[in-house]
C-alpha cells in the first residue's frame, strides 16, 4: 500500500502589498507526483529553495496543496476531520534541533507526542523507552537537551516522533545544522530505523552521500521533480546533478572524471570502496 501518494501537487505562495492586493505569485511546487510504499527509504534531494521543504510540510498538513491532492496513509490531507490522524501517521523532524525540543528533560520531550495523543501513562513510558533505545539515546533519558550535542538533539527529536508510532517519518534537512560527526550519527540512526524497525523513511536533504543507500531518490528543482530513480540511476548523471547545485559524493565525481578521460568504469559508483574495486579491474 502507498503510505504517501502525491498527485500533481501545485502550491502557490501569493505575495501581497501593504493593502493586501496580490502582487506576485510564486509557484513553490509545480505538479509534483511522488508515491512512497510501506517500508521504503526515500531520498528527496534539492538545493535551498528547490521546493523540497515545502513538499515536506504538505505531508504533515502544515500546508495544503493549491491544486492536486496528497494522501497520507490513505487519508486526504485536506480533510479537516482527519488532521490529527494525518499528523500522527506521518511524523515530522525539522532542521533546527533547538526549535523542536519542547521538554527540558530528554524523556519528557519524547513523551510529549504520546501525551498529546492521549496515550495512557503506562504505555507512554514503554513508548519513550523503546523510542530512545531505537535511536541509541536511552542512557541520556534524564539529561537536559541543552547539554547534548547537535547530533544527539536530533536523535532525541527523532525519538519524539517515533514515540507517536507513525507509519512513516519525514525528516526535513535534519543534518543541515550539524557538524560532520553529528551528521554521521543522525544518518546512521535513520538508516537503523529503516533497516531494523522497517520504518518508512522520507529523508529530505541536499547532501547526496546521505541517500546513497535509499531505495529511490527524487531530485527537485524549481518546484518540480526533475530526476527520479534508484541512487545508481540518478547519480550516474553527474553534470546534471552539478548543474542542480547538489553535492555529488567525492567517489562519484572522481569516477565521472576518469570515465571522461576514457577509463571503462560502470555508471553510478557511489562509495570509495566501489571505486577502488572498479579501478583495480581496469588495470
Amino acid at each position: 500500500m502507498d503510505i504517501v501518494k502525491a498527485e500533481n501537487v501545485v502550491f502557490e505562495y501569493i505575495r501581497r502589498d501593504e493593502e493586501g492586493n496580490p502582487t506576485d505569485v510564486t509557484t513553490a511546487l509545480d505538479h509534483v507526483s511522488i508515491d512512497v510504499r510501506q517500508g521504503e527509504f526515500i531520498g528527496i534531494l534539492g538545493h535551498n529553495g528547490s521546493g523540497k521543504s515545502t513538499f515536506a510540510k504538505h505531508l504533515n498538513a502544515i500546508l495544503y496543496p493549491t491544486e492536486g491532492t496528497i494522501y497520507v496513509g490513505g487519508m486526504n490531507t485536506k480533510d479537516d476531520d482527519k488532521l490529527w490522524d494525518v499528523r500522527s501517521c506521518a511524523g515530522m523532524v525539522f532542521q533546527n534541533p533547538d526549535n523542536q525540543i519542547i521538554g527540558q528533560v530528554v524523556e519528557e520531550d519524547v513523551g510529549f507526542g504520546p501525551e498529546n495523543l492521549g496515550v495512557p501513562t503506562k504505555e507512554i513510558w514503554e513508548r519513550v523507552e523503546e523510542s530512545l533505545r531505537a535511536v541509541g539515546m536511552l542512557e541520556y533519558r534524564k539529561k537536559s537537551p541543552n547539554k547534548l550535542s547537535g547530533g544527539q538533539k536530533q536523535r532525541v527529536s527523532i525519538a519524539g516522533v517515533l514515540a507517536m508510532h507513525p507509519k512513516c517519518i519525514v525528516l526535513d534537512e535534519p543534518t543541515a545544522m550539524l557538524d560532520p560527526s553529528g551528521r554521521k550519527e543522525v544518518v546512521r540512526a535513520i538508516r537503523g530505523l529503516n533497516d531494523v524497525e522497517k520504518m518508512t523513511v522520507i529523508l529530505i536533504t541536499h547532501y547526496m552521500d546521505e541517500v546513497v543507500h535509499a531505495d529511490r531518490i527524487f531530485v527537485m528543482d524549481k518546484g518540480r521533480v526533475v530526476m527520479q530513480g534508484t541512487p545508481k540511476e540518478v547519480f550516474s548523471d553527474v553534470p546534471t546533478l552539478e548543474k542542480l547545485r547538489l553535492d555529488v559524493p567525492g567517489p562519484t565525481r572522481i569516477a565521472w572524471e576518469l570515465k571522461k578521460k576514457g577509463l571503462p568504469l560502470p555508471d553510478g559508483i557511489l562509495t570509495a570502496e566501489e571505486l577502488v574495486k572498479e579501478i583495480e579491474k581496469c588495470r
Partner: peptide, 27 residues
C-alpha cells in the same frame, strides 16, 4: 575523500600519488 581514495589505491599496489587533495588531482 580524494586523498583517502588515493591512499586506498596505493595500498592495493596502484602507483597513485598519495598526497592528492582535490578531485581533479586525484583523477
Amino acid at each position: 575523500e580524494s586523498t583517502r581514495i588515493a591512499r586506498m589505491l596505493k595500498d592495493k599496489g596502484i602507483n597513485v600519488d598519495p598526497d592528492v587533495l582535490t578531485v581533479t588531482e586525484a583523477a
